[in-house]
């Protein structure tokens, strides 16, 4: 097994552990965060803030030392290669936000909850896959941020 695969298993492991530790796998907590005019639970701002700060700082420090070459020599994407702000991005994000507000699930936490075999995740994840296939069939849309 190559180092790259160990890295990727470790990255997935940390991602899943982080989601569960932070409370993002609890839909009630996520909806409490979005319920800004009710009994607002601000804790998820700390999750996103902590994740964003760690990622942005680590990315900056790595590039200052190593340039745009990754751990195994891959070319790292930069912001100027990311997709433009267009109608699809706005409409897609709007639709995603509505689904997020209804369920309290975004893709990561929904997948993480499969580990506990929760009924909600077992229904949500296949439905999410259908939605992704629909976007691909109807709009040929399967873009990733920046690179493919």
């Amino acid at each position: 097994m190559s180092t790259r695969w160990i890295n990727l298993f470790a990255a997935g492991f940390l991602f899943g552990a982080g989601l569960a530790l932070s409370g993002m796998t609890d839909p009630g907590r996520v909806i409490g965060f979005l319920d800004v005019t009710g009994k607002w639970d601000p804790s998820l701002a700390f999750v996103m803030g902590g994740a964003l700060t760690t990622f942005a700082l680590g990315n900056y420090l790595w590039r200052r030392r190593n340039g745009a070459r990754g751990w195994f020599g891959d070319t790292l994407p930069s912001a100027d290669t990311t997709s433009p702000i267009d109608f699809r991005t706005l409409l897609g994000s709007l639709v995603f936000g509505v689904g997020w507000g209804i369920s309290g699930f975004c893709p990561g936490p929904a997948l993480a909850n499969l580990a506990a075999l929760r009924a909600g995740a077992l229904v949500f994840v296949p439905a999410m896959a259908i939605g992704m296939l629909l976007a691909r069939v109807l709009f040929q849309a399967d873009q990733d941020v920046g690179v493919n």
Partner: peptide, 29 residues
């Protein structure tokens, strides 16, 4: 901790919206 919101039918609808929206919009959280 796990407090589901609404029933499984609502979750199925939300799942389709999340899958469709994240692919059309190019990303999630």
């Amino acid at each position: 901790a796990y407090r589901p919101a609404h029933g499984l039918v609502a979750l199925a609808v939300a799942g389709v919206l999340v899958g469709f929206g994240t692919r059309l919009g190019g990303g999630c959280t």
